[in-house]
Structure formats: C-alpha cells, structure tokens
Design a protein around this nucleic acid. Structure first.
Lengths: 192, 192, 192, 192
DNA sequence: AGATAAACGAGACGGTACGTCCGGTCTTGAT
DNA sequence: ATCAAGACCGGACGTACCGTCTCGTTTATCT
C-alpha cells in the first residue's frame, strides 16, 4: 500500500471557510490589532479550538485569507493591456486612489502591521501587490532589451514603487497622483 | 492675569526619563507588540498612573523615545561628506547592514508595526530615516540644477529607497548590497 | 514605628461580600460541582481576577461562605432547652427533616462533595454540624457523671450520629424519624 | 417471532475490561475529580464514543468498577471468625489503618466525592463497606436474641460506625484505634 | 509656618482576550 | 452495529494586561 491511512472525521470545509470569512470581515471592520481569535470564532460560529487546531496565530489566519483573495479587492490586480507604462501608471493610480480614502489607508496600514508581525503575510503581501507579478516580468523584459542602460532590475523598481506607497501610508502623507505618474515615468524611462 | 495658578510638585524628570528608558529597553527586548505599559512602569519603578498621566498609549511613549534618540543608533544618521552619491550609498549600506542581522531586522519590523498603529511614530520614523533630512535637501538641489531632466523630486526618490528597505524587511527578503548601490546610481543619475 | 505599611487601595469589602453571596447563591442553585468561578464573578459583578486575588479555589470560597453563615440555615443550630435528650432528638429531627426534602438532600450532598475536596470545608462542616458544639460538651458532661459506664465519649457519639446522616445522604436511603429517635435513646442512655 | 435481529459485531469485552481497568487506574492516580472520560479512553486505548455508548457518566463507570472489585482492596471485606465483637473490631481497625495512610485517606475521600455526585456509587459504597454485609445480619441476630433491650438495629449501628469513619475522613481528624475499639464495645454491648 | 493640592509608588478594581482542557456529539473507514 | 480515531461546538479554566480608581506619602507653591 501507498500511505498510512487515518480513519475518522475529516477536516470540515464549512468551518474552514466560515473562519476565513470571519477573519476577513473582522479584519476589515476592526483592523489587524483588535482582531481577536475569540471574535473570529464567535463570528464564524465555531469553537475556538477549531481555530487553534488549524492555525497557530491570527497572522496565519490572515495570510491564508489573503491567499484566498478575501482581503484585497480584485481591482488591485495589475492590468495588462500591453502598454507597460500605462499599466504601471494605472495600477499605481488604483493603489493611490485606495489610499486616498480613510478605509483604504486603514486597510493598508493594517496589512503592514500584519506583515511586520508575521513573515508569511509579508511575503504574500509583496507577492500580491507587485513584486512577483506581471510588472516584474515585463519590466525585466524591458530592461533586458536595453542591456547596460538600466542597471536596476524591474523587480526592484516595482518594489521601490510599492515601498513609496508604504512609506506614505505609514507617515500619513497623501500621495499626489501626479507625483506617482512622474515616478513611473522616471523609473520606466530606460535612461535614454 | 496670566494663568490659573497651581500649587504642588512639578512633573518629575527622573520618572520621565526612567519611563522613556524603560520603554526603549523593553522595546528592544520584546518588540512593539509584547510591549506593555505595566511592564514599562514596573521596569521604570513607577506607578502605572504616572505613565498614563503623561502619555496616552504605548505609541506615544515610543514616539517620544524615538525623538529622544533612545531607539535608533546614531550610526543611522546620514553622513555628509559633500559627495552626495557616496553619502547616499553609505547610508543605504548602513541600513542594509543593520537588516542583515536578526536583531536589526526585528527592530525595523517593530518600528514598522508601531508606525502602522500610531501616526506620530510613522511621521517620526520617516523624518528620522531619510525623507526630511539632508539627503532630501541635497537631492533636491541636484534636481534643481538640472531642470526638466529628472521630474521626480529628491524627497520622493529618498522615500522610494526607504520604501524598498521596508518592503524587504516586511517580506524577509535580504537586500543585496550591490543592488542597493545600483539603485542609488540609477536614482541619482540625472538621466544623463 | 511598629510595622511595614503599604500604601495604595485597600481590599474592597463590597466586592468581598458580593462574591461570597454570589458563591452561596450559586451553590444553592447548582450545587458544588457546576459551581464555577466564572459564574460567581459574573453574578457578583466583579472581575475573575478579583476572585483569584483573594481565594485560591472554589473550595476556599465555600469554606468562607460557610463560616459567614451564608450556606446553612440558622435552623440547624442546636437548641438548648436544658433537656439533653430532647435537644439532641430535636436537632436530629431537624436534620432528618431537611434531608427529606430533595433540596435539603442535594444541599447536604453538595456540602459533602465540597468537604471531600477541600479540607477546610470538611473541618468547618464538622464544626458547624455537631462535633464542636454544645451537644459535645453536654454529652461529655453526662458521660463524666457516670464514669466507667459509657466508655465512648460524647464527641464521638455525636460524630456517629452525624455520620449516620451522611451515610444516608450518600446512599439515598431515607432516615426514618423513629429510627433517629431510637438511636438517640441508645446513645444517650448511660448503659442503664 | 421472538425479537428484532441485529447485525454487526457484539459488544467487545476487551474494550469493556480495558475501560474499567483504566477507570480504576486513573481513579487511584488522580482521584474522582480530575478523572476524565477522555483520559480513561486514551488509557484504555479505545475511542471516547465506546465509553459513552455503554456508560453515561464517570459516576457510572466508577460504580461498575467498584462492583467489579477494581477499586477497593480485598482486605476490606469483613472477616468472619465467629466472634462478632472481634470481627467488627478487626474490620474497623483495617479501615482506620487505611485512613492513617495519605493514599488511603485520599481514596476514601475520592469515593465520598463520587458517592455525593452519583447515587449508584453511594449505594454500592454503603453496600460494600458495611451495611449490607455479614455484620449487619449478625448484629441483627444478636439484637433479635435480646428483644426489647437494644432498640437500635444492627444495620444502623454499622452505619453509624461507617459514618464516624466518613466524618473523620472529611474533617481530616485521625481516628484513634482505641476510640474505635471502645465504640465497638459500646455498640455491641447489648445494654447489659 | 501652615495649608493646599498635585505628583508619585503601589496596587485593587471591572473587564477582555488569551491559549488550554474537557464535555458530549458526530463522522469516517475498518472489522 | 461496534470499534479506534478524532473533528466539532461549547464552556470554563487560570493568567496577562488594559485603563480607571483609590490610597498614603512627598513636595512645591500660595496664603
């Protein structure tokens, strides 16, 4: 035979989904701190033990909810129209629009707090919000096409853009849309 | 008349210093979360009420300790040798060295968590670590000298650099020193 | 000076009384097991910590409530009309009447459970219900008056009577009033 | 037809014995409170459901273990040499010896706690430890032989003796062997 | 020189949430 | 149908801190 079986009940998917959804709901409602396992379990209609059985901390919960797409709106996924500069600009615009609203800024800061506490959230946040995704690959392609001219790779430039946004969120400085646009231009202009 | 008089003792400076130092010590030892007012008061040998009388939250405590220079080492203050590119590079190097060590990375993440929760910490962190300081003014001067060529202002470029570092700290990706150097080069090269 | 003072707030008597009364109320309502610190604190309108600060277990709580006379009715205190045999008989009658009612029997069994778990409750129960009190001394006097005739001392005879009642409570055997009367007669009759 | 058939396996005697033995073992190790169904099932190597299928509570479990003779040592069974007074005395001595040891006292208190909670345990404890057994019948015979002289029946006198022991166990008062002997003498002396 | 009153250390108080244990029920796959 | 295994919802455990509120003591100012 292939594997050590285990009889007995299997993990309840209903409980899992209810807990992740409760996590997302509570996260949006109260932010990362003020997020309590007790509150999540109650909202989900499960026992606390069921949460602790499968997740070790609220960080893990949030990381999984993030992965399931329950935290960030689909709007934040990067567009891909073929025009790199336009796409980058649009994406940055979407992000900066989000930060204009108090709810959006609070959401971002909550995510940062979660990332600061929990490594997995940090990794997933970076992956979701820019570094791993299409821009990276496309910026890289751009860079490759002009060897020697732009020594900073695409990934790092994307990170720098995301970083700018994070710094603004943390310092509560609004991000002027035109500034964002200018930055995109500087960063994508292949030094020409 | 000038003011309603008040008799009685005046604020104890000994208590104030003891509390701020205890804050710094506990912050370094346990990080921002796990920082407790109760623990700080005990460490400082004061009553809890003395803390609550003068500060409203652990965020305020940390913001003041940060301002007093009790949190970050002097090393992180930006150098000023006259050579802008070299200075920027050296400063970025210092920061990235700090993040190489586990203690330094943890410290940075703790600061980010604090900034996410408390606006004043965010502002002061940004001010301390780059955006307001000499680089900004000097980058700006550089930019001003070449009008039209580099549409992104110095402040934003510094923020982008700091942002990159923060993104790396949050995602637990090490920052390759040569990458940092390259970024400095790109950002300071006035498009020439 | 005489003693090491301690400044700061003093123990709240209101909280203490509320907790002991809540203990008694919950004890009567639900019995010793099913008595919860959480329930007591809630009923008393205090925090749990206030309970744990002053008492170490529900046993200690009950022991103190017993001592305060919040558990047993005054009826159970032994009468003293001068006629020993009549008094003993009346007291035994009161006890056995109490056990006739379901509430009384449950109360007695709850007390026994508490005594089995907590030494102090055991001691106080014995003290309250017979061994230390007037009967003991009076039986002893009786015994002393007839040396050599009744080698068992009064205290032990009283204990045996109480023991009989406890055995009946534990085994759910009703105690026939006439049996009780007969036992009193045997035990008090100085062998004549 | 005689009866509705029933397919499937029949009750596993191995599981039953394992559970009862685990009950006895855990009872001796930790006492009645601190006895958990979960712990018993784990010790017995069975599922919890198998316990709940056949017993309704830890009280029932203990009652059955008591009946199987897994709880009390054989030593406690009453001797029968023909000499009533000597037998009673010896039995009381055995009991009081047991209570001298901390383990024995704890065992007795645990049994009392169980009896207070669970009627069946109470009945069986009384049956096992004295009321139903040979002494009762023999004391009764003694009493019958002298009608009118000793109005308290043998059963009640035995209960009183057992009760004395229980009171002592509950109040943590040691039982002086000579006292026990004296009581036996008083109670068996047919008033002569 | 009092009298006044705020600041201080200590810590009790009503609460909320923690992470754990166990109760009793239910589900699964094997026998 | 029973069994071993164990997930599930729920309730209580005992602990850690929260922010507020006394206490009794110590000081600095005002009368």
């Amino acid at each position: 035979m292939t594997e050590g079986h285990r009889s007995g009940p299997v993990r309840s998917d209903a409980a899992r989904r209810a807990i992740l959804e409760a996590t997302a709901q509570q996260f949006h409602e109260k932010g990362y701190d003020h997020l309590t396992i007790e509150g999540i379990a109650q909202r989900a209609g499960t026992g606390k033990q069921t949460v602790y059985r499968w997740w070790g901390s609220k960080g893990e919960l949030l990381a999984e909810a993030l992965l399931e797409g329950l935290i960030l709106p689909d709007t934040l996924r990067p567009p891909d129209t073929g025009d790199l500069e336009a796409d980058l600009s649009a994406w940055l615009q979407t992000l900066s629009d989000m930060l204009q609203q108090p709810r959006g800024e609070a959401l971002m800061r909550s995510l940062i707090a979660a990332a600061a506490e929990h490594a997995e959230v940090g990794r997933r946040l970076r992956a979701t919000l820019g570094a791993d995704f299409v821009f990276t690959r496309r910026l890289q392609a751009e860079v490759d096409a002009h060897p020697g001219e732009a020594p900073a790779s695409g990934a790092e430039l994307t990170e720098a853009l995301l970083g700018l946004i994070i710094v603004r969120a943390l310092s509560r400085e609004p991000l002027d849309p035109s500034t964002a646009a200018r930055l995109v231009q500087v960063l994508t202009a292949p030094s020409a």
